[in-house]
């Protein structure tokens, strides 16, 4: 049971997908124009995440390693369709507010990321709790951003207006406001030096951004191998060069010593000659 509470804490706080890992940015920006939409999106994602983690963890020994990504995608897509049909039937208003972003949960990096990083390697119970933790963390993030935007943009929280119409800054519920609110929240995180994917320093110059947590690319593993081999070769070459340089330096030193010795003996000989004279 201990590991389960640890997974919950990990998902909600330590590795919060929105604020710490910066995953699933598309829904984060798109549906947070009000707190209730953020909450709905977060809970739908949580449902899909828990079910897909459960399923993938159960099937982890059956899925061949080579086709695991397509297999994960099929599992996730099935649960997304289930959630979509349920929302259509029981919460049509939320369904129309979230629109195309419900089916797009399929390509949410968080879900595939958790399937790949956790559920495919761990037993069922911790995987389910991992799903719950990550899902609640995502819900928390979306609801926070939703509340910020709703208060600033339409002077309300969860639809309850408390700021008169004249003082609304409509900008914040429009598209540019989403970017701006998220930017200020991440800047705040940087300022307070809270752990975040944004303040760990540069991620390198790899074309994909080097963000392996977000990526399900299959050629990356190969690329990584090649890169590592190249690096090792480079290191070996460097070591070889250093060795050669050292050997050369040694030889040069010895030559110099010999030369010096010769000169010394010459000088001595000259001195002896002088003495003789």
């Amino acid at each position: 049971m201990n590991s389960c509470t640890e997974r919950l804490k990990n998902g909600i706080i330590t590795e919060n997908p929105t604020f710490v890992m910066m995953l699933g940015m598309c829904p984060t920006l798109a549906v947070t124009s009000s707190a209730i939409n953020g909450l709905g999106m977060g809970l739908s994602t949580t449902a899909v995440l828990v079910m897909s983690n459960l399923m993938i963890s159960l099937l982890r020994k059956l899925i061949p390693d080579k086709v695991r990504i397509p297999a994960f995608i099929v599992v996730v897509a099935s649960f997304v369709t289930v959630v979509q049909l349920l929302l259509e039937a029981y919460l049509p208003s939320l369904n129309s507010a979230l629109g195309v972003y419900i089916p797009l949960i399929v390509v949410n990096c968080i879900i595939l990321g958790r399937a790949e990083a956790y559920a495919s390697k761990n037993p069922v119970l911790p995987s389910v709790f991992d799903g719950i933790g990550m899902g609640l963390g995502f819900t928390f993030g979306l609801t926070c951003i939703g509340i910020c935007r709703e208060v600033l943009g339409s002077g309300a929280i969860f639809g309850k207006t408390f700021i008169p119409d004249n003082f609304h800054i409509t900008f914040f519920v429009l598209a540019p406001g989403a970017f701006l609110v998220l930017s200020f929240l991440t800047a705040l995180q940087n300022k307070l030096k809270m752990p975040s994917a944004t303040n760990v320093g540069a991620q390198g110059d790899i074309a994909c951004g080097g963000n392996c947590a977000q990526c399900i690319g299959t050629s990356c593993a190969a690329n990584k191998g090649i890169l590592e081999a190249e690096r090792a070769a480079e290191k070996a070459a460097k070591a070889k060069a250093a060795k050669e340089a050292a050997a050369k330096a040694k030889a040069a030193k010895e030559a110099a010593k010999k030369q010096e010795g010769k000169e010394k003996s010459q000088v001595a000989a000259a001195a002896a000659k002088e003495k003789e004279d």
């Binding site: 598209a175 540019p176 970017f179 998220l182 930017s183 200020f184 800047a187 940087n190 944004t198 303040n199």
Partner: peptide, 22 residues
């Protein structure tokens, strides 16, 4: 500014671009 380095300044840029595209 130090706290805006990295992602935040990129998001501010994106926000300004979104205003332009509006």
């Amino acid at each position: 500014p130090k706290s805006f380095q990295g992602t935040p300044i990129v998001l501010v840029t994106a926000s300004l671009m979104a205003i332009a595209f509006c």
